[in-house]
Structures are given as C-alpha cells and as structure tokens.
Write a protein that binds this DNA or RNA. Structure first.
Lengths: 142, 142
DNA sequence: TAAAATTACAACCAATAATTGTAATTGTCA
DNA sequence: TGACAATTACAATTATTGGTTGTAATTTTA
C-alpha cells in the first residue's frame, strides 16, 4: 500500500511537534516559507525526493523513517525437500538476486506454458540430485 | 549528502536495465508515458514521494533501495571502516517472487558447477526462443 | 540491411509548487 | 482578564514544471 502525500505530511507534522519545533523553525531549516511547510503537512503540495531529504535533515531523522513499515527483503529458508509445501499465506516474498539469477528469472518468466515450467523445475531438481550424488561418490573415493 | 533527482534517476535507469525492462514497460507499470520515465531518469523532472513508490513497485524493489546508502542521523562521525564496503547494487536487487520462482531459485542455487548453471541458462533461452516462434506461427495461422 | 523496438529530444499546456499577504488561533504573563 | 506575541490557517497570485504528444535518432533483431 502506497503512502499518500497527506499521510506523509501528517507524519512530518507529528514528528515536528514531537520535537517541539514550530513550522517557522522547520521552514528555516528546510529553506522554504513556513506556509510551504503547512502545505506539505496538509498534503496540499507534493513532496519531491530532494525536498523530503531536506525535511528529514531539518528534523534530524532518516528518510527511511517514512518507509519503515515496508517489509524488508526476506531471505527464504531452504525447503525440507526440494519441493517445499507451499504456505498459502505467503504468495510473494522478496529475495536479493545476483545478475545470473536475474537472467534466469527473466527467462523463466517468459515461459507462458505451465507444463514447460513445471517440467523445467523437475529437470532442475534431477540435476541437483545428480550433482549431489557425484560429490558424495567423489568424497568416498577420495 | 543529499541525493539529487539526477542521481536518483540514474539509479532507476540502472536498476531498470539490470532487470531487462524497457522504458515503455516501466512506464506502463507506473502509469505515465515512457517519455516521462525518461525525464525522471535524466533528472529533468522532480520525482514526488508518491511517484517513487509507484516506480519502486513497478520495478519490484523497495523504496528504501534509494536511500540504503544514507547514513542514519549522526551525532559524531563514525570511523571510516564501517562504511568502506561499497556494495554493487546490481548484484543485490530484491525481487518479489512467487512460490514457483522461489523453488526455481532454490534449486538453481544448489548447483555449484558454474558450467552447468551457464548451460541451463542457455538451454532456457532456447526454450523461450522456441515458445516465441510457436506463438508467432500460431498468430499467423489464426 | 530492413524492420521493429527502444530511446532521445522538442514543443506545448494544464497543473501546481512556492511566494506573499492576511486572518484566525493559541499561548503567555502583568 | 486582556493585551501581546507567537504560531498556525487560509487566500490569491505567479513562475515553474510535471506530463503529454510528436518526431528524430539510435539500437536490436531477424
């Protein structure tokens, strides 16, 4: 859910008051008129990316404060088996990816045929299986 | 140090390209013309707080990505060594994934042999190729 | 190399960011 | 209480720019 300017403005106001700071003082720190601060707080005017940084600095807080509620990228846990039981609650999580993995995904997402996708995954799990067996036998004969 | 719109725009462009996404496609996801995306990327137009959220969503990343490097409000400057690690963003993009894609990734990550991974991607691109050709011929005979 | 796709650049216009001015509200203290 | 200062709300105006469409240039694909 995206945050509206009105919501962000209210947050600015809340923080400003919590700091016992007047609109005038904040305006001074930001470099605009205090009436302009009012507009930001009311959500009348949009807040640009540069402006939010000035405001955050004047308030002595981090810009991230305004997006803290966003869920951070979560690292998924390895599945028990190769096919993990899907949990209905979560259908989308975020993972940090490297370039190779991005390429993999870009290609995979182009495959519209579901059976082909499923087949690929099955094949992939076979490869993984093979690689593991090989490493095991290597280990035994080493 | 505050980030200018130009810098933020460049970051958007870099991420978009890393994801293999065209301006058109991004524009579509954001809900503006692709020329408007150009202006954001060039820093010609300011990016509002609401707009950055739409852009982030269309890119499948968190808004915080644009402020990750930001230092939290500092009273005294911390030692340099804690900041020394320069992280390459392209190698650390977070994407929302569905269950099938997560499975794919988890399997792919188990493959330690680089050649096998590369071969897989090559094979995958071949499949994509095939599927596209098929859809083209379907379209022609339809 | 021709086509298709993607990107860059220009001109135009409606929308609004920011200013100044004034009124209303709140707080302070004699 | 009432006068005052400070703070905040609201109005009107203007310069700026966010967003569009159109076209040219560039890159990619077949």
């Amino acid at each position: 859910m995206i945050k509206t300017h009105k919501e962000i403005g209210s947050e600015i106001k809340r923080i400003r008051k919590a700091l016992g700071m007047s609109q005038m003082k904040l305006a001074e720190g930001v470099g605009v008129s205090f009436q302009q601060i009012q507009k930001y707080e009311k959500g009348v005017n949009k807040i640009s990316m540069e402006m939010i940084q000035h405001i955050a600095r004047a308030l002595g807080i981090s810009v991230n404060t305004f997006f803290e509620k966003e869920k951070a990228p979560v690292i998924s846990e390895p599945p028990m088996k190769y096919y993990s039981k899907k949990k209905n609650l979560i259908d989308e999580i975020s993972l940090p990816l490297n370039q190779e993995e991005i390429t993999l995904l870009q290609l995979f997402r182009k495959i519209e045929n579901k059976k082909i996708r499923e087949g690929l995954i099955k094949q992939l799990s076979g490869i993984v299986e093979l690689e593991r067996e090989k490493s095991v036998s290597n280990h035994l004969t080493r």
